[in-house]
Design a protein around this nucleic acid. Structure first.
Lengths: 253, 253
DNA sequence: CAGTTGTGTTGCATTCTCTGCAATGTGCAT
DNA sequence: ATGCACATTGCAGAGAATGCAACACAACTG
């Protein structure tokens, strides 16, 4: 809607790929160098862009700070965190918390597995939306037409043989998930990794977030992981209760 | 330099404080509501701003993703991470990695203490620049005039009785730190927390990052923590070597 | 139930800002 | 020195952003 701002903001994802100099930025924006310069200057003043010693531009520090502040303002996260930690302590596996926002599902919290093999933290990164157990729960709760619209728009990458192949299969899976109130991902993203997930609901019953427990085959089989389902659901329900204000929190009453 | 972009970007820190509605945004920007609306729309299209169900705006998902990507492009971080983990495994305390950027020092990586008391992750948050051990190392390496300029510009909050009181004291501390090649923070930020830090240098000898080990008094005394200094320095040197390309990395040769 | 207040939203004419050009400046390599 | 590649600045014209006023829409309120 605003051309200038639009152009300026287009610079950010571009720099996210790696540092670039003025000419490169101007080319990829399709504008004159002087224009790109002025946009970059403005971004710079706000700290979103940093000019490194070789004069090339890259994303700046304020961006981290902003993302961090934004993250801390998500109240589901704050409420859920201790529950996630407790769940991790009792089962030892990686625990994730995710939310849906405009065609994307992203992890907003994570407690690392206590087993030696850990993957590097991906908080803030978009989730493989067509296969992740948490994504299924979040999308399953969207209104019919929106769910359909999103499903049609998505790509369906074949991560493994068990990845969701297309929109039809995905929508059927979402129906099943909505029905049963929980979801799994059995090797749909990484061959050897399974997840089991449960929804967190607000006072109105809508799904506001989803949490999951993930573990590689080499640690526990899919069947063994499924035995954790009741515990995961209980944890999710506890968070739901607290989030929607039904359960007074210990120590604050 | 660009008014429109400037206004649009000013919205971000404003929303970082918490969700706001159109009127509030317009007021704080000092522009007409319709103007604010169009700016917000543009930010929205780029995913930097999200409109929650009560119509209020807050910071959006793409912001996390951007910050995340930017973070992963910092190559010091990638190289340092395994070293930090190893250091954490051998001493058990919290390990931080920080860089300096335009009057700010910020943590770009952290390995949690293995002791039960952990503070919540602050990666991306600016550091208490006048007292943190890593900040001293990073600032101590700036050219004389820049160091002085920064020191004059800073605020010197009295976090504790041992906080750096003013620019003069800070500059003297920086001289000492540059001399000895390592730094400490003994209760200057939080009464009960001590840190010991060492610099990571690039091929040209300039300090590109700094790392520290932090522990509360209740776990180890300041003197005990100082016995870790040689280990911290060795780790920092190992990272420096690898970063500047002097040490071939195992497994990649 | 009508009226009212508080929102967010759109069309439009005016004006001011942004744009692209061309010229200048700056550093680096030959 | 000379050339090259890049960043930077001044300027005039064009086009985009702005503020206004009118509209839509909900939630209150009498």
């Amino acid at each position: 809607m605003s051309q200038t701002v639009d152009r300026a903001l287009s610079i950010l994802p571009l720099l996210a790929e790696g540092p670039a100099d003025l000419g490169q930025v101007a080319d990829r924006l399709g504008v004159h160098k002087s224009t790109a310069l002025r946009l970059l200057r403005t971004l710079h003043e706000h700290g979103l862009v940093y000019r490194q010693s070789d004069q090339r531009y890259r994303l700046g520090a304020r961006l981290f700070a902003l993302a961090q502040e934004a993250m801390e303002n998500l109240d589901v996260r704050e409420i859920a965190h201790p529950h996630l930690v407790r769940l991790n302590e009792s089962c030892g596996h990686t625990v994730h918390l995710a939310v849906y926002e405009e065609n994307e599902v992203l992890y907003i919290d994570k407690v690392e597995s206590r087993y030696p093999v850990r993957m590097y933290s991906r908080i803030g990164k978009p989730v493989a939306i067509t296969v992740a157990a948490v994504a299924k729960l979040l999308l399953a709760d969207l209104p019919e037409h929106e769910r359909r619209a999103v499903a049609e728009k998505l790509d369906y990458p074949t991560y493994t043989a068990r990845s969701t192949p297309n929109a039809g299969a995905f929508l059927r899976e979402l129906d099943k998930v909505r029905e049963q109130g929980w979801a799994t991902d059995l090797g749909g993203h990484e061959e050897s990794i399974n997840c089991v997930a449960a929804p967190i609901r607000g006072a109105d019953g809508r799904v506001v977030a989803a949490m999951s427990v993930s573990a590689p085959n080499v640690v526990v089989t899919a069947d063994e992981l499924l035995t954790l389902l009741p515990l995961v659901r209980r944890t999710a329900d506890a968070i739901s209760g607290e989030y929607s204000g039904r359960t007074p929190v210990k120590g604050t009453v």
